[in-house]
Design a binder for these strands. Structure first.
Lengths: 133, 133
DNA sequence: CAATAATGATCCATATAAAGATCATAATAT
DNA sequence: ATATTATGATCTTTATATGGATCATTATTG
């Protein structure tokens, strides 16, 4: 029943468009530092991939992502899942935090210890110091 | 015209569901290394935020993200935009690559130099070595 | 202890990232 | 030089991450 699908699709589009009038899109802005950190990570990945003589498709397959996403990652696109980026880094051998597995685990424990000493919640000074003058 | 919206919504749901029968969802799996790297980063962010006495809401606002997303970031959720994570890290003062802005820029240049020396594309050995026996 | 604020968790709607397909171009091996 | 393959770029569809609201719980201050 092709006609059904077409009609339903028309209503679907209608529904989608009625709210599309004001996209309310989220235009996110990034600091220079973030952009450069991401760019560097992407380039390190690309260098590592080539040094290991792996094609983009091979790495993408191993990481379980599309080649297109890998391209964006290597370009330092900030709108990528951090999980995908990290996974690719691992595959091509780029170390995160400059640490191996064991070191990573140790750092986690240290950080958790530190965290346990800090207050569970941050309390804003409820009242201004009552500036008497 | 509330009725219109309801009807249209019904068709919308119908349309969405006809394809939902086989979600074909992408269940991504992550390596232990990726999971721990992300967890560490999240915890470092949380520690830094508390040390600076910033509430979750304040940091979220400054980063232009929701408090919910910040929560996920601090928990090391791998399904977050890397841009959001990096931005938060910058705000609370967690250094990426253990480098300041200048160092970052220098590393980028070094990496690009390295990249320029590598072949533009990786070529798989087109033919197996013709295993004659 | 009481009051209040921060955090954690969950839900829904929607904006958007990702997959997949396709095309053009560039780069490598023979 | 030529054939072949990798890469880059763009488009559409679909899956999903995010924002925003709400509620319960926990912490902190006074």
């Amino acid at each position: 029943m092709v006609v059904h699908r077409i009609i339903i699709k028309a209503f679907y589009d209608l529904y989608m468009n009625q709210n599309k009038l004001m996209p309310k899109s989220i235009i996110r802005t990034y600091s220079r530092y973030s952009r450069e950190a991401s760019l560097l990570l992407g380039e390190l990945i690309r260098v590592a991939r080539k040094e290991r003589k792996l094609t983009a498709q091979e790495v993408a397959d191993r990481a379980g992502i599309s080649r297109g996403l890998l391209q964006r990652i290597e370009k330092g696109d900030l709108k990528c899942e951090i999980g995908a980026v990290f996974e690719v880094a691992v595959i091509v051998g780029v170390k995160l935090f400059d640490a191996d597995e064991t070191t990573l685990t140790r750092h986690i424990r240290q950080t958790e210890d530190k965290l346990s000493l800090l207050p569970k919640s941050v309390r804003r000074k409820s009242k201004v110091v009552h500036d008497d003058f």
